[in-house]
């Protein structure tokens, strides 16, 4: 007992630090950080700032995956909510635009949740519907063009700052704290993990598995709508064709890098966000390296493979024995 091994999460933290170190090697000014217009400025800040949308998505996705589900629609929901926010920003007060965008996200989540929890449709199929239709809905809202806005309130989410921290990063941090408080401060976390680990057994133990499932999809929709707002604010416009495109896959990847199993159960919100940062650190590193862009995807794939291999129980089994069951993860 005296020699307690480090808690799970070590591989993710090490991977993140390693990637940052590699970034520093390819780009020596990587850690240079200064204030620019009252806001932190530097490559490291970019990692957090650019990673914000995927980090937000990964918070909701972590909960959904914990219930043995998946939400493929988050990218499309981002596009919808960004479009709603951008098209209302200049004509309505900020609270209305934000409220409408968040409301749209909640509705999308509710729709997915109803399909999965009430109608019992497989999550991958149920959310595929909105993944396909959602982008069309977003295009209808923007009428196929990039809707730009000049409202400084909404633009704050992209260019503003809180105590020098970019607003998007602050939003991620706030959402992470709120979600952690919600799931770990109450018994929701336990019930979500129980639902994902064994829904039949949990229902027999009195857990409202259906309500849990519904709740996680709604929360995921909310996270996606925040991500959509951040993404739209970043370019001061809503690009229905490209906003959030393929980000659902990055979000799933972030959660998986964060050590969660697609078969549900244990989840860690912090590690999911760290997973998103790992992905972004990699992207930023590639951009800084000056490598020809043709190598981007290959480099990314190799790094992801390496991170996942480090976590693989089978591989860990080959290495000198450690504590039982790495696969039984702790939060």
């Amino acid at each position: 007992m005296a020699l307690r091994l480090p808690r799970a999460g070590t591989p993710q933290i090490l991977a993140f630090l390693a990637i940052l170190a590699v970034n520093w090697v390819v780009s020596p000014q990587f850690f240079d950080t200064r204030f620019q217009d009252g806001r932190l400025f530097g490559s490291l800040v970019d990692v957090f700032n650019r990673g914000a949308p995927v980090a937000l998505l990964s918070i909701g996705m972590a909960l959904v995956i914990a219930t043995r589900g998946i939400d493929l629609s988050v990218g499309a929901v981002m596009a919808i909510c960004g479009a709603v926010a951008a098209s209302l920003a200049d004509s309505h007060p900020l609270p209305v635009a934000l409220g409408a965008a968040l409301g749209a996200g909640l509705l999308c989540g509710l729709w997915n949740g109803l399909l999965v929890a009430v109608l019992g449709i497989q999550p991958i199929v149920a959310t595929l519907i909105l993944m396909v239709a959602g982008r069309g809905i977003a295009q209808l809202i923007t009428e196929g063009r990039i809707v730009t806005f000049s409202d400084p309130g909404l633009a704050w989410f992209g260019g503003g700052s809180v105590l020098g921290v970019p607003a998007a990063v602050a939003v991620v941090f706030g959402m992470l704290l709120l979600t952690v408080a919600l799931v770990r401060g109450t018994a929701l976390g336990l019930m979500i993990e129980a639902t994902g680990g064994n829904a039949r057994a949990s229902a027999l133990a009195g857990v409202g598995t259906r309500a849990m499932t519904l709740a996680v999809y709604i929360w995921c929709g909310l996270c996606a709508s925040l991500a959509g707002i951040v993404a739209a604010a970043d370019i001061r416009g809503a690009d229905a064709n490209n906003a959030g495109l393929w980000l659902e896959l990055d979000a799933v990847l972030a959660v998986v890098i964060g050590g969660a199993s697609l078969f549900g159960g244990r989840f860690s919100l912090g590690l999911a966000v760290l997973g998103a940062l790992i992905i972004q650190a990699m992207n930023t590193g590639i951009l800084l390296s000056g490598f020809p862009p043709e190598f981007n995807l290959i480099v990314k794939a190799v790094v992801v493979l390496a991170v996942l291999l480090v976590q693989s129980p089978a591989l860990v089994g080959i290495l000198p024995s450690r504590q039982w069951g790495r696969s039984w993860r702790r939060r």
Binding site: G197, A201, G265, R266
Partner: peptide
């Protein structure tokens, strides 16, 4: 196994 325990908890 199927109706009782939640194995990984």
């Amino acid at each position: 196994k199927t109706d009782g325990i939640v194995a990984e908890l």
